[in-house]
Amino acid sequence: MPTYRARFDATVAFTNGGGLQVQGFLVDVPSADVTSGEIGELFLDSLGLLMAGKVQLSKVEVVEAAHKGTRGGPAAGGAARGEGTAYVELSHVIRDGMVTLPNLPGPSFSQQLTREASREIYAPGTEFEIGLLTMVTNTGTYMDSPYHRYPDGHDLTGFSLERTVDLPTVVVRVEDSGRLGIDAAALATYDVQGKAVLLHTGDDVRFGTPEYVEEPHFLTRDGAEWLIDRGAVLVGIDAANIDDMTDGTRPAHTLLLGAGVAIVEHMTNLSAVPPTGALFTATAPRIEGLGTFPVRAYAKLP
């Protein structure tokens, strides 16, 4: 179902004197036909303003957009979806020859056993196909383990299911922030303790094209430090790299993996996940000695 946000200018007069003016402010709203009074209440709730008196709105525009989790808004506690369970796929499909990053070879599909050849092995009317896949481990949507960065870090087998399955999720939407770096200030309003933090940049629309690696979003050093200090257990991003690819020190990888925080890169479809309330899962095969491998990543909606 579509979700909506309201953009507006506002003037607030405080009962103890003084006032506040804002331009182009945005809040999540429950529907396209929300009233100005409801928007004003959401505005006050989002800022936690005390002693606020009359609110005057102007230039009100309701637009279809993914909710960002306005405090006190319709998605603040997770979006209600009715009965039943719904899932959102968050992984790119792996296809023969696909490009994940331009400096890495694409996967190559072939057959170890063809159906035709299997007819000589099995009974009449019984046939099988066994595929053969050759690829780098950084293909499609994949998970990084500490061994990817550190020779003494644990590999993919070191992630328990408790650290990768049904994690409470926070989606941080930065696609319209006007900034490529996702820093501590952009994360400051979120409760990330024990959660999967998914950074929704919108870069996934360029996946598989040369433009995907042109000015991609990334997590800054202080953003990574902030997430570690506040107890995030997994960080995902729908961009070409969780790091600024012009910085050879790779601070986000270095800090997160050093703290044992799993990283999932090249995600997609994060716009379909509510800001809070979903449960995130990303699991890789239990392969010993590998630092990265593709995952089936998905969200269970509330």
Score class of each variant (00 low, 15 high):
residue 70 T to C: 08
residue 73 G to M: 07
residue 82 G to T: 04
residue 95 R to I: 05
residue 113 L to I: 11
residue 80 A to S: 13
residue 102 P to L: 05
residue 136 V to N: 07
residue 134 T to M: 12
residue 91 S to K: 01
residue 94 I to P: 01
residue 111 Q to W: 12
residue 130 I to M: 13
residue 103 N to K: 06
residue 88 V to N: 09
residue 116 E to S: 09
residue 122 Y to C: 08
residue 151 P to L: 14
residue 152 D to Y: 04
residue 128 F to N: 11
residue 91 S to F: 00
residue 85 T to Y: 03
residue 147 Y to H: 13
residue 136 V to F: 02
residue 91 S to E: 05
residue 139 T to L: 05
residue 130 I to P: 02
residue 104 L to G: 09
residue 127 E to N: 13
residue 111 Q to N: 12
residue 132 L to N: 15
residue 141 T to R: 07
residue 114 T to A: 09
residue 141 T to G: 06
residue 113 L to A: 14
residue 82 G to E: 14
residue 79 A to W: 06
residue 105 P to S: 11
residue 145 S to C: 04
residue 72 G to W: 00
residue 105 P to T: 02
residue 103 N to S: 08
residue 127 E to Y: 09
residue 148 H to Q: 15
residue 83 E to L: 08
residue 97 G to H: 10
residue 118 S to A: 06
residue 79 A to H: 07
residue 149 R to I: 13
residue 144 D to Y: 04
residue 103 N to I: 05
residue 149 R to Q: 14
residue 125 G to D: 02
residue 113 L to D: 10
residue 145 S to W: 08
residue 120 E to S: 15
residue 127 E to I: 03
residue 118 S to L: 02
residue 76 A to E: 14
residue 128 F to H: 15
residue 130 I to E: 06
residue 105 P to D: 04
residue 131 G to W: 08
residue 112 Q to H: 08
residue 130 I to W: 05
residue 107 P to L: 00
residue 152 D to Q: 14
residue 125 G to R: 13
residue 96 D to F: 02
residue 82 G to Q: 09
residue 135 M to C: 03
residue 144 D to E: 11
residue 72 G to Q: 04
residue 72 G to K: 13
residue 96 D to A: 04
residue 104 L to C: 02
residue 88 V to C: 00
residue 94 I to V: 15
residue 104 L to T: 11
residue 140 G to R: 05
residue 94 I to T: 12
residue 129 E to S: 10
residue 95 R to S: 15
residue 104 L to M: 07
residue 97 G to V: 05
residue 115 R to T: 12
residue 122 Y to D: 15
residue 135 M to L: 10
residue 126 T to V: 14
residue 123 A to E: 14
residue 135 M to A: 08
residue 143 M to R: 15
residue 146 P to I: 00
residue 98 M to N: 03
residue 120 E to I: 00
residue 116 E to N: 07
residue 77 G to S: 13
residue 135 M to E: 05
residue 79 A to K: 11
residue 127 E to Q: 14
residue 77 G to Y: 07
